[in-house]
Design a protein around this nucleic acid. Sequence first.
DNA 1: AATCGACCCAACCGCCTGTTG
DNA 2: GCAACAGGCGGTTGGGTCGAT
Length: 240
Amino acid sequence: MGRSPCCEKVGLKKGSWTPEEDQKLMSYIEEHGHGSWRALPAKAGLQRCGKSCRLRWTNYLRPDIKRGKFSLQEEQTIIQLHALLGNRWSAIATHLPKRTDNEIKNYWNTHLKKRLTKMGIDPVTHKPKSYALGSATGQSKDAANLSHMAQWESARLEAEARFVREYKLSPHPFQHQCKQGLSATALSITHSLAPPKTLDVVNAWQACGHLGQPMIVQFSETLCSTRQRMHYQLRSPAVL
DNA sequence: AATCGACCCAACCGCCTGTTG
DNA sequence: GCAACAGGCGGTTGGGTCGAT
């Protein structure tokens, strides 16, 4: 039995938001916090479903959102992370301060994907299109290794994103997390609500010449903090 | 000035995951 | 263990905008 859609109630408004609705939503959240999204519309006097309210808030009304053109640095970050993570926009967004996953997704689909295609690069594999066919030999090992790194990085990003969410929801997450035995570094990330300064796997990948060399990656402190929890070590392909 | 097509982005939809009773 | 629920995510789309003709 599937879930019933949250907007199936009759009389709920859909489509573009009016300035009045925005104002109601902002005022309510500023005063009470969002609490339960499902209950919010009635309390805020909105004829919308909770999901629509959440989307409007997280993608548009939140005060810590940066809008406008993406910088070159941001573009490079998106491309590099997309090469590692694929279409995992929320994970990518954790590395781009003040950008939403929806905005990044839109920017990728409307700008970056086309640009890569024009450059002769497959936007899915991030390889030159002529190269994509010739990977059946020795590079499969490297590709597997990179994939392994990507999986790990993906898990790390998810963990960080979860910390951030928990921080926002919990009144005293710092103390709570300390009790859970998390490292000071992980806490500093959540406490500042800032993404990690380094793109660990990207940097490591670049440092070893992209592919084809044995490597023992020196992780950043961010990565190490997560490693403590996950009991995970990345070693050279020979060890793997 | 009118029309058309390409582009852009806010918002919706459906699915998945985590939580709760 | 199971069902119901809430929140989150990624794919898709509708409609507004803008430039070309």
